[in-house]
Amino acid sequence: MAERGAEPLWRTPPGRLAPPHVYRMAGALGAELRRLSGRFGPDAVAGLVPPVVRLLELLEALVAPPGAEAQRAQAERVARLEEQNRRLRGQLAERSTARKEREVMLRLKEVVDRQRDEIRAQAHEIVCKSRDTEALQEQLNRFMSMNEDLRHKVAVVQAQLKSALEQKSDLEAVEGASLPAEDTPLRPGPGKSPAHCCFSREELQQILQERNELKTNLFLVQEELAYYQRELLNEERIPSFFLDAMKSSIKKQRRKIRAKMLGTAEESASSPGKAPLPHTFICSPCSFGLWYPGSGREAPTPSCSGAWEIIDSLEAQPEQEGRREPDGSPHRATPPL
């Protein structure tokens, strides 16, 4: 039986050798050794058994399928890794939710910070605005009182103008006979009956001059009023010191324009209605010459160089604007009634 099985067993090519073959070889060798020890006594094989056993062991080790151990180890490792992976994934999930929470927190903090800043800025702005409002209110009050002033002035001037115009129409009614007597002095004396009253040429000239002055005044006051009215509408803030400076400059310019319109020297214009006309119109050497071409050439002063005067720009700025007015507001002398 050993013989039968031995033949193919021992001829197994080394490539196909597997552990069962080795076991079977070990069995065959064991049987043979037992037979030998039975025949020649156990001592005879005692020296042979350990090396044979060792050889068989080595053979078994060599023949054993190569992956078996490694596969086990690998499977183990894979399992370990998967386990680890699972653990890590769990950790990661935990951690990412934590991070998200933190992000949200940070964003919320940002929003809170920004809103705090905004609130602070707005509070500041409110303070500023309320200060502005107060100042504007103050300015408005000032303007309103100024406006009232001007209205009053206009009313006065208008009344004066009206009476002057009445005088004029009276004069017109009477003037028929009186005028040709050119330089004769006042005729009616203390009689005072207006129907018989006559006017000398000088008186007529005085009346005209007065009327012109009133008209000029009215024009200037209306312009000034228009200017302040527009300033009120303009909403632009003007510091009070500037306003004062402007007012005084306007006053100065008014004198100049007055003088220009009336063709008088500037100084005499400061006492309206009192400058004797023949003097200012005929005798004064600088009456028209200062303001109009032709005669102005002999005395070219820098401040009045031409047909018009170019007022020093620094001085003129407010004045210039003073001459401007909102649309549609009256800007001419009131028409004679």
Partner: peptide, 10 residues
């Protein structure tokens, strides 16, 4: 740009 004045022509 700057120079301004009140101009009247008779």
């Amino acid at each position: 740009t700057g120079t301004v004045g009140f101009k009247i022509s008779k």
